[in-house]
Structures are given as C-alpha cells and as structure tokens.
Design a protein around this nucleic acid. Structure first.
Lengths: 396, 396
DNA sequence: TGACTTAAGTTCGAGTCTCGTACTTAATAG
DNA sequence: CTATTAAGTACGAGACTCGAACTTAAGTCA
C-alpha cells in the first residue's frame, strides 16, 4: 500500500503551505485574478487570501497589476494578481549520451534561460559546467529545485539511477555531482527523460490543458511517458512506459534486444531507415528529415512511412485502450515525418478504439524540440511548490 | 490540468481531519501501535496524537487493548490502539446483469455482512431491496458511504454512468435510486466493476501490500483494473483498463464487436470454450470448471488451455511493459483454470519483459470470488475517510 | 520493601492559522 | 455631492499543533 504520502501538513504552518499552494495552482490554471475572485475560486475566506497574497508578493512569486480588471464596473475595482514568479526558479537538466541541456524556468512558467551543448565522451562533466554557467548567468533569484532527466530507470526516491544502459552512471552519482555543482543551493532530484518530456508537453507543449496525456518518443529506442490526472505514472520499479519491447507490429522483426517482434523493431529509427532504404545521419532528426524529403518523390519511401505510421497507430491503440488519454503527443524523430506518419497512425487508431463510446484521443506532434526533457525536469522541480510540500512564501 | 484537487484543508478543522487520516492510515498499514509509537510513525507531536486518538476512541473507530505491548520492558507500558472501526461502516454494492451483491465493511476492514442474490429481469429493484435488507440487518453504526459497482463506464463525478451496454441504466439513475433506498443516510457513488475488484484485491485479496497492481478479469468480455501508487487509474473518460479489444493474440479471431484480432476473441470465455470444444453452462465459472476437469484426460483440451495461457501472457506482457505492476491478479473464469493457464502465461510473460533489469510481476489468482467488486466498492466508499476528505471523529 | 529509573501519556501555555464581521477604500450613478 | 457597490483590510474568536513540564505505571536494584 501507499507509503504515508508526502509531508503531512501537521502544524498550522503546514496548513498555510497547503493553502498557499491552492492559491498558486489557481493562478497557474485559471489565470490572474483579484483577491476577491481568488477567494471565490479557492473557497478560502477573503481575509485569508489577503494574507497569503501579501506573502506571495513579498516573496516575488506573484505581482499586482495596476490595470483594473473590468473597467466600467460598479464598486471598488479589484487589482488582479498574476503568477509571475520572477525571483523563484527551477532548474531542469538533461544528461544524454551525445548532448546535455539546461533550462531555467521561473515559477510563472516562463523559460528564463536555456542552452544545449553537444558532448563527446563523458557527458557528466559537461552537464555540470553547463549547470554552473546557467545558474551564474541566469536571473537573480531563489533556486527552488533542480531535476536531472536521464535516459534510464530512476528509483522511487527520485534520486538514484537503477539502470541506464547507455550512460555509465548508477545510484546517486549524478544527483550527488549536481548537488555539489550547485553548492547544495537547492534539492536535486533525478527523473526519467521520457517522463520529463511528457510532463513538459502537458504543461508547455502540445498537451497543455490535458489532464491525461501520453507521450511517445522515438529515436533508436521507443519510450513513453504517461500523465494521468496530472501525475506521472511510474510503476512499481520505475519501468512504466518502457514500451519499446512490447510485441507489436511486424512479429518477425528482429530487435536489438535479441528478441523478435518488439515494437521498437518496427518503428524504431533503424527499422524506419531500413524500410526507407536510407542511411543514418548524424542525428535521428536529421535522418528523419532526409527521409521525409525523399518521401514525396519516391513512392517506396512513402509506402514505408505509411506502413510505419500504421504500426505506430497499432501500438498507440493498445496504449489508448489501457490508459484512455485525452491527448497523444509524438516526439523524437517522428516530428520530422509529420503527417506522413500521423495520418496512417490516426487511421489505425480509429479502427482499434474499444468502443464507439470512446472518442479518439487527439494525436499531435511535439512542439518542444530538443529541450523538452530539460524543460519538463524544470517544471517537475517546481512541483513541490505547487503541491504545498515546500514553502515559497516566508512568514513575515 | 488537474482540477483543484479534493477539498482543500482550508481551516484548522481540515488540518485535524488530515492529521486524523494520517493516524488512521498508519494504523491500517502498519498495524496497532501505542500513542507514542504513532507519534514516531507519523511525525506528529505526542500531545497531538493523544487528542486525535481520544476522538477516534470516542467515535468507535479505534479501540484500546488492555494487553501491554512489550511485557518486560522498562518504563510505563503503552496501551496499543488498534483500528477496529466497529461502529463505522461502508456499504459496497454490485449491480450486474444476472446477480447483485452487497458487502458491509467496517472501518477496520472486516466484512460484517455480505450477500449475493441471483437476478432475472431488471436487477435494479433487487439491488435496492438487498441494500435495504443489509443495512437493516447489519450491525448498528454510522454508514460513512456507499458505492455501487457496475459493469460499465462511469464519469469523473463518480456517480453518473456514461455507458453500460449490458445494463439498461444511464446517468445517475442508479445513484439516485440507491440514495433513496438508503434515505440519503450517506453519500452514494458509482464505480466501474473491474476497478472495484482491482481495489478489493489490493486491499483484501491476492495483491495485499502491493502499491502497484493489475487485475484482469475474464468472462465473456475481458476487463482490467489498474492500481498505481494505491490509486485507481481512470483515464480521461473512465475507459482506462478497457483492454478487451486490444489487438492481441490470434489476429484472425473474430470478435463480437465486429473486428478481428481483439484480445477478447482469443481469451474470452467463448473463445476458450470453442477451443476446448465444450459447451457453455449456466455461469462462466461453471463452464470453466467443466473445462478444467476435462483437461487432465483430454490432451486436446489441455493444449487449448495452454494456448489460451500463452495469449493471456502475451497481453499481460504488454500491460506489464506499460504499467510495471508489482502483482498481477487473474480473476473471473481464469480462477477455475488455475495453473493450467498461469503456467503458460508466466512463460509468455517471462519472454516478453522489457529488460533483464525488470523483475517479473507476480502472477496470482484471485481469492475473492463473486463478491470482489462489491467488497472493493465498500472499500472505496471508505476511502474518503482514510484520505481525510471526510471527518470521522467528532470534535467534543 | 522502597527508592530509582525509564518511558507512556497528559496538561498547559504559547504560537499560528482561518474565519466572520465590521470597517475602510475606491470606483460608478444620478 | 451623495448614494451605491464591491474590493480589500483590521480585528477578535475559535481551532489546532507544539514543546516543556508533569503525572503515571511499570521494571530494577539495593
């Protein structure tokens, strides 16, 4: 059964933390509002909202606009408060095999600084240098948290790596190294890259506003991130969403894992390139762009892509049956193939919905690019604030 | 994005509610404890635990044992408190096509009364009569909540039915009818039957102690219930776990839905009976028992069952890849087939795990029988207490 | 047997929080 | 210039948690 969840509120200070989080979430999800409106939205007393907002203003988490909310209305006009979060930052990092990224996000959801650097050799030192640089060059403010996205399996402590076949890291070496690079300035956690990217899509990308989203990324491997009721699905050992080796698609296709019929062996980058009869270029995206460019002229390539799309849709249908997402976002190399994959995938998906009562999940392309995982990691590093686990406003 | 979740604690009374829930969960999950132990477990102050426990004793939610916890220890011996919940009840109901069930559960997790009645014709009146009977004959006490499990789709309000192809009910007619039958004595909600059964397994059945569990039930149709971090997965429209029509197994098998290759068409009751060459009897369980009895003598039947098990395992492998459960529980007619299905399913599952790093989920048979859904519904009706949304102890 | 030790549980006062009410403030309407 | 309306604030009451001091109920050891 579930662990004793989160920090219990315990004291009245904890109560304040929770109510502050309620106000922050309301501002994030429903936009700016006057104190009176906030009181209505949250169910808190006007007086309470007043106190909380004052503290948030003091902490530079929100700011008051001078503009009146509804000019021409009777009564004293309210001054709308909006979530700007100028001075409160979350750092998202991505540690990957051939590149590292960093995104500095403020509490208002604006990206304040972001950078990606290519890597040859051990990526960790490059990541640490990047992290230090970004923090130094970024805007002044309080760093509330940092999260590192890694292509691998992360344990339930959100810190130690259980398995990362392409990266030579394990346990909490990454977390500890970043801890040190940041001088212990803020808590550091680690997360799976697909999960982080999924989170990014649901907060900033193609799945904004969707409470239930599925993110599928494809490069050489295939991975998924699952958001249910706004929360990331982790599974008992962190493996949830490791969908690359499900038996889907061409059952005779040989996979790098030694088995046959893995989904990855049908829709992974190498399978796609082989089917299109084209070579692998420097990056998956490049390779896919080249294939996309060729597809219009060469009907064989076009046919390969629509077969690919069909197999993508088949797997998505299975996932949609299990998870019932509102939106499905395709990332990775699929983005470069665009409608050439989306259309046949939609067809396959349509034919495989469980019942006429279910509407088809919206199938979209990722809009976030390379830095999706880092952005999601940054967003996740701020989650503790929005959930009320961490206090942002100081009591005066 | 997520709605403003749950009732915010808001006032200090809400804080008490939450802290009371922390104590209750600790008692449920970690067993009886003295006040001092509870203080350590929950992080609350000794004084606070004292007050909360007094209120819980008053409300007949917990009771103090006279037995000393550790005889022979120095210092004043503590009086252990245990969750008995004598006077606090949750009612679980199941509305099905050919039977209805009711389970009366106390807060301590003991079934105080349960009954199942067969139905011919409209099941709703029979259910209402059963509900009234059970409440009347059951032990005196406060009814904290009631939930009706239905074979159908339930909307996010946990009350109205969106789709129930085998039942002639829609919207909130069921909830309203039960409301009336119970004289509005407690809040009434409605839930999907597979979800309820999954919840029952994770609290009382084969998946006790597992935070992440998958429940698969098979009769004519195939359905799943998914527990992740102790919470039920619902999906955006309540369809999560509707796995019967995923394209798995024999791709040529014709399904009742008009398509081919649905999982249901390979492992549903009718497919099993056809493969075994045996007739359908009164109930799925009966039919399956007959097949199981024949399997030892007739190698053709044995072979059919191991093919069935293989197809079950194939689908479970996919689900395990997506969800990473700790335990998988098979219910429905599979229970009667026992190891004849489990063994080939385990084999297929083993061959299809995503990586050597993942351990195989434990595959078990349901132990709860017909009343699983009603029991789970009863358990769910008490969830609001354990989550702190509803107060159980009255402030004196 | 009786003083000492140890730990459980309770009492109490201080501090924090939310809430409702009453009040002040800033705009429009006439 | 006065009345009206609604936003925001001040304030006292009530609820809750907490730490420290205190009481209680056992075992320990002379």
């Amino acid at each position: 059964m579930a662990e004793q969840p989160g920090a219990p509120p315990a004291s009245t200070e904890g109560l304040r933390r929770l109510n502050t989080a309620v106000v922050l979430r309301s501002l994030r999800q429903q936009g700016p509002a006057t104190r009176a409106e906030l009181a209505k939205r949250t169910g808190l007393a006007k007086a309470t909202v007043g106190v909380i907002v004052s503290a948030l203003v003091e902490a530079a988490a929100v700011s008051e606009a001078d503009t009146v909310v509804a000019p021409g209305a009777r009564g004293r006009p309210g001054r709308p408060v909006s979530l700007t979060g100028e001075g409160l930052l979350g750092l998202g990092l991505e540690l990957n095999v051939d590149f590292v990224s960093a995104v500095l996000l403020d509490l208002g959801g604006r990206v304040r600084l972001s950078e990606t650097r290519p890597v040859t050799g051990d990526p960790l030192p490059t990541l640490l240098a990047l992290a230090r640089d970004v923090v130094r060059r970024g805007p002044r403010g309080r760093l509330l948290g940092a999260m590192v996205a890694v292509p691998g399996l992360v344990r339930g402590d959100d810190r130690s790596v259980a398995w990362a076949p392409n990266l030579h890291v394990a346990d909490d070496v990454v977390a500890a190294a970043v801890d040190e690079a940041l001088d212990g300035r803020c808590p550091v956690s680690v997360g799976n890259d697909a999960n982080c990217a999924a989170f990014a899509e649901s907060h900033h990308g193609a799945a904004v506003g969707a409470d239930h989203a599925l993110y599928l990324t494809g490069t050489v491997g295939i991975g998924a991130g699952i958001v249910d009721e706004g929360r990331l699905l982790r599974g008992s050992t962190g493996f949830a969403g490791e969908v690359g080796h499900m038996p889907i698609g061409d059952s005779a296709a040989r996979c790098g894992c030694g088995r046959q019929g893995c989904w990855e062996a049908s829709i992974g980058l190498h399978a796609m390139l082989a089917a299109a009869g084209m070579p692998e270029l420097e990056t998956p995206l490049r390779s896919a762009e080249a294939v996309a460019a060729r597809a219009d002229d060469d009907p064989r390539v076009g046919a390969a892509l629509s077969r690919l799309g069909h197999d993508v849709g088949l797997g998505l249908a299975i996932l949609a049956n299990v998870l019932d997402p509102e939106v499905i976002v395709l990332g990775g190399y699929f983005v470069a193939l665009g409608e050439r994959v989306l259309e046949p995938a939609r067809d396959a998906l349509d034919r495989r919905l469980p019942s006429p009562a279910q509407r088809r999940p919206d199938l979209r392309l990722s809009t976030l690019g390379m830095e999706a995982a880092a952005l999601g990691a940054a967003e996740r590093s701020l989650e503790a604030v929005f959930s009320g686990e961490v206090a942002v406003a100081v009591v005066e």
